[in-house]
């Protein structure tokens, strides 16, 4: 008798199904989006760190910090947590300002950076209203310690390309602007973005917003869904449930 436990569907497996369905469509017909349920976010930073680990982000580069705000006065007080990935705007202010077309909107809606094209001028960083872009200054976490550790130099697979890290060089992604790309390399494998996978509160929904059957499309249409800085008209594809 299993009625005492609500028959559970594994949300991550369902969303992976959603992704696989989307991958069968032409790239231009997908529209990747994310819904973050702030009621389920416990501010644990697992997404932040998993992203750092997955993309081998060096010190100073972060794609998905979690903002932590205390609200109210004692004893009527609470805290609110808000993860901040790249909003993957439909009208991204960062794209037109790039002088060399290094950043662009992919047909599937992801705002991508061509690491080999980027000259590192950081104009896009100033243009993003969400501070979603950070600059790779070339640091490593274990520089200056008794040993430069190898795990930091292992390649990341951003945009489906192996990028080993070579501190002291100016080889990309060092010297580039960097940002969240919804773990495009994982999407292409039918996997969820790392932050969605690793969320211990299952607070993220992810998938193809164009797919009516997808969980993310359902959640993005909830009455309590909002986007950040809506007044700017950037049309984010990241929604928050509040």
């Amino acid at each position: 008798m299993s009625d005492t436990i609500v028959p559970k569907e594994n949300l991550l497996l369902r969303m992976q199904e959603d992704i696989r369905r989307a991958l069968e469509k032409p790239e231009g017909e997908r529209r990747w989006g994310m819904v973050i349920d702030t009621r389920k976010c416990v501010g644990c930073h697992a997404c932040t760190i998993s992203c750092v680990a997955e993309n081998k982000l060096p010190p100073g580069v972060v794609y998905r910090p979690v903002l932590d705000q205390e609200i109210g006065t004692y004893p009527n007080v609470t805290r609110r947590f808000m993860p901040r990935p790249c909003m993957q705007c439909e009208k991204p202010p960062c794209v037109p300002v790039c002088p060399v077309n290094a950043t662009y909107i992919r047909p599937d809606g992801i705002v991508a950076i061509d690491y080999e094209q980027c000259i590192g001028c950081r104009y896009c960083i100033t243009a993003c209203p969400y501070s979603a872009r950070t600059f790779d200054l070339g640091h490593t976490y274990t520089e200056g310690t008794p040993e430069q550790e190898v795990y930091e130099l292992l390649p990341n697979y951003e945009y489906g390309v192996e990028h080993p890290r070579k501190p002291g060089s100016e080889e990309s992604p060092i010297g580039n602007a960097r940002k969240c790309h919804f773990c495009l390399h994982r999407l292409e494998q039918g996997q969820l973005p790392m932050c969605v996978t690793t969320c211990i509160g299952i607070a993220n929904y992810f998938g193809d917003l164009n797919d009516r059957e997808s969980l993310v499309a359902e959640m993005a249409a909830q009455p309590n869904a909002i986007v950040l800085k809506e007044e700017l008209g950037t049309k984010p594809k990241v929604f928050y449930l509040i």
Partner: peptide
């Protein structure tokens, strides 16, 4: 291979416990 579970931030950072420069 392509199904990952979740883990807290410390779990993710275990790499840095193992490869500790000290």
């Amino acid at each position: 291979g392509s199904i990952d579970g979740w883990i807290c931030p410390k779990g993710q950072a275990g790499i840095q416990t193992v490869y500790d420069p000290y």
